[in-house]
């Protein structure tokens, strides 16, 4: 069947492990929260890039839009966090609804350039609109009510982590639903061969737009979660670095499987954390090497490697079993 989704046996243990982090690493929950936020962002990118083949280098636009929307809501007195996240996600999707029809007219290389330039424009805009974004100082007066009116935000980020994890879980299941639907199959068809899709009568543009909107929604949610849990939004949420970071995470884990987004975000963020003391320029050696590595090992990133190893060992086991009379 669907090869991409043949990993459900590992999925339940994954979520259990993610929950267990609260107990096992109680003092690292801020980091875990940040990882979960980026994992959701990477999932959103996988939906657009890995599944639908929309080659975007400017996805920080929607992450940033969600972050600023969440911050703006909190500043305006909308302190309820969950609805704040949802509204921020919708805001990001609306933005995608405006930009998408233009962006999606191009494909491949022009698309890369358009999304890159649009991302830079948004970044400049945020820097210039310092009344709204706080410019270089960012926004830090984000005041939120307790989650569901019960769970108070904690210094140890335990509530933060579980809160983000819940959104990650729901977002991931939603994304999986989309990929597993015939709409999701149509997206992969478009990624493979858009011309033939048109000749199957598919409304290619509208399929792509809906994939893009869903992706932007999730990215906006991730951005909003980032704003809420760190109580801070700086213009760097919109920067090219953010777009590139999430791209590197996704391709490191492997595109097109959704699982790769989770794996990539975890590995990348952990490595980044270990190298936190480093000179940022030295960190670039790591990113550069990772990218070259990912392209060299070919399709599928880390998830692809794991799959190949399991397949090979299964084959060897199968052969040995056959060898015996």
């Amino acid at each position: 069947m669907n090869r991409l989704l043949q990993w459900p046996s590992l999925e339940a243990p994954f979520w259990v492990a993610a929950l267990a982090v609260v107990v096992i690493f109680p003092s690292d929950l801020s980091l875990a929260t940040a990882i979960a936020v980026m994992a959701l962002f990477a999932v959103s990118l996988d939906l657009a890039l890995g599944i639908a083949g929309i080659l975007t280098l400017g996805h920080a636009l929607y992450f940033g839009a969600g972050a600023y929307a969440a911050a703006a809501l909190a500043t305006l007195g909308w302190a309820e966090p969950v609805s704040g996240v949802v509204l921020a996600g919708i805001a990001a999707a609306l933005l995608a609804g405006v930009a998408g029809p233009f962006i999606l007219r191009s494909r491949g290389l022009p698309l890369i350039m358009v999304t890159l330039v649009l991302g830079l424009f948004a970044f400049e805009l945020a820097n210039k609109a310092s009344d709204f974004t706080g410019g270089d100082n960012g926004l830090s007066d984000i005041v939120l009510a307790p989650v569901l009116g019960v769970f108070h935000w904690s210094v140890y980020a335990r509530v933060e982590y579980l809160y983000v994890l819940a959104f990650l879980f729901v977002g991931f299941q939603g994304a999986k639903r989309i990929v597993g639907s015939s709409f999701g199959l149509a997206l992969r068809g478009i990624r493979d061969n858009p011309v033939r899709m048109a000749y199957l009568g598919a409304p290619v543009q509208s399929h792509l737009l809906r994939a893009y909107l869903s992706s932007a929604l999730l990215a906006g949610v991730a951005g909003a979660l980032s704003a809420q849990t760190t109580r801070f939004v700086g213009t760097d949420v919109l920067s090219i670095n953010t777009s590139i970071d999430v791209l590197v995470m996704l391709v490191l884990g492997g595109t097109g499987s959704l699982y790769g987004a989770l794996v990539g975000a975890i590995v990348y963020m952990l490595v980044h954390h270990l190298a936190a003391e480093w000179n940022p320029y030295h960190w670039m050696f790591i990113i550069g090497a990772l990218l070259v590595f990912v392209v060299r090992i070919g399709e599928g990133g880390l998830v692809g490697i794991a799959r190949r190893i399991t397949e090979r060992s299964r084959q060897t086991i199968g052969r040995r079993a056959k060898g015996r009379p």
């Binding site: 069947m1 939603g174 639903r177 989309i178 597993g180 639907s181 015939s182 709409f183 999701g184 199959l185 149509a186 598919a202 399929h207 809906r210 869903s214």
Partner: peptide, 9 residues
């Protein structure tokens, strides 16, 4: 193909 959430299975 328009239904986004119904599983193809």
């Amino acid at each position: 193909s328009r239904s986004m959430l119904r599983s193809i299975g």
